[in-house]
């Protein structure tokens, strides 16, 4: 099972790093650095600097996002921070405040 799931009642204050898919239902503060994709589920809260290959946000991200492939903000998501990714999808209904850098 090459995936990591952070449950809804879990609070992590620190750094998460790894090579596998990460799903966040809970709260992560600090720093996330995963090679694979990152999904912030509805109810999930990430207050961290994020580096990943691709990120999908259904919940809330408060921090800078750097994705090597793509970043997707789903409806009802909230993102405050700069996004740096070659491909960025912002769905209707998503809330976003910050700068976008698609320069690669």
């Amino acid at each position: 099972m090459a995936t990591t799931v952070i449950g809804s009642s879990i609070v992590i204050d620190g750094e998460i790093s790894g090579e596998e898919h990460l799903v966040v239902h809970g709260t992560v503060k600090g720093r996330i650095n995963v090679r694979d994709s990152l999904v912030v589920e509805n109810g999930g809260l990430v207050e961290a600097t994020v580096e990943t290959s691709s990120i999908t946000v259904n919940g809330t991200v408060n921090g800078d996002i750097s994705a090597s492939e793509r970043a997707e903000l789903r409806p009802n998501s909230t993102v405050i921070g700069d996004i740096r990714a070659p491909r960025i999808l912002i769905a209707d209904g998503a809330s976003f405040k910050g700068n976008v850098d698609m320069g690669g």
Binding site: I12, D13, G14, S17, G18, G30
Partner: peptide, 9 residues
């Protein structure tokens, strides 16, 4: 995956 820091839940 490696987590460094405080983890509570």
């Amino acid at each position: 995956t490696r987590i460094v820091g405080r983890l509570s839940g």
